[in-house]
Amino acid sequence: MREQGAPESADARLAARLGLLRTERGWSLDELSRRAGVSRSTLSRLERGELSPTTAVLGQLCTVYERTMSRLLMEVEAEPPALVPAAQQPVWRDERAGFVRRSVSPPHAGLRAEVIEGTLAAGSVVTYENPPLPGVEQHIWVIEGTVEITVAGTVHTVGPGDCLRFRLHGPSQFHCPGPDRVRYALMIVLP
């Protein structure tokens, strides 16, 4: 038995996640056994954390649950750290587009939101043909400069201190009309 306040092991989190995936679908152990081709007793022991799954069994379960193994394992990662130091925030640059993206609060399997700092050079345009996930919620708060954001065919001019918020279902475009760059915070919340 683990001490109160001690973190659960990865195996214990995986066992709990496997049990939750089955119950979310309303399947009995017998039904899962039929679908996955894994014995009922093995499944029961896996979900109770008495047995660690082999790669083959985990692969069979991932197929039944329509997940890649990496996605399933990401879903059982430990809780995200509370503090993300600036030096550890990933930065990606697209010099040709004049765009810099800092992942201030990176995505994590245990969290539904992330925070990004975007900087777009004057005159730059970034177009997204499709949302990363239909219905994703976005809040864009401009810190400095001005940006024109096109969502659902409507152009919104967003200036310092303004916040544009919406659910994204189609293409979008960010345009910095200048004369200076725009710097903004983008909050993304998964549906």
Results as ranks from 00 to 15, higher is better:
V151I: 15
T63N: 07
P107D: 03
T23V: 10
Q60I: 07
E79R: 11
P85Q: 09
S44N: 12
P179C: 10
V104G: 06
S39M: 02
V189H: 06
W27N: 01
S28E: 11
A152S: 10
L58E: 12
S124Y: 05
H108K: 06
L32Q: 05
V64G: 05
V38Y: 00
E137M: 02
R40F: 04
E3H: 08
L83Q: 02
L72H: 04
R22Q: 09
L83K: 05
V104D: 00
F174Y: 15
R71V: 03
S70V: 08
R165E: 10
T127Y: 13
R34L: 14
P85G: 06
T42I: 14
A78F: 04
E129C: 02
V182F: 01
D180W: 04
L83H: 10
I116K: 00
P90V: 09
S9M: 07
T54S: 15
E114P: 01
V115F: 09
T63H: 02
A16S: 14
H139W: 00
V136C: 01
T54H: 03
V136H: 02
R45I: 06
Y184I: 04
E114T: 10
L20I: 00
G123L: 09
R40S: 07
R165D: 06
E77Y: 01
R165A: 13
E129I: 00
R2D: 10
R17Q: 14
R35C: 03
G19Q: 06
R181K: 13
S70D: 15
I149Q: 09
H139V: 06
S103V: 05
L58F: 07
E3N: 07
R35Y: 06
A10L: 13
D11A: 15
E129G: 14
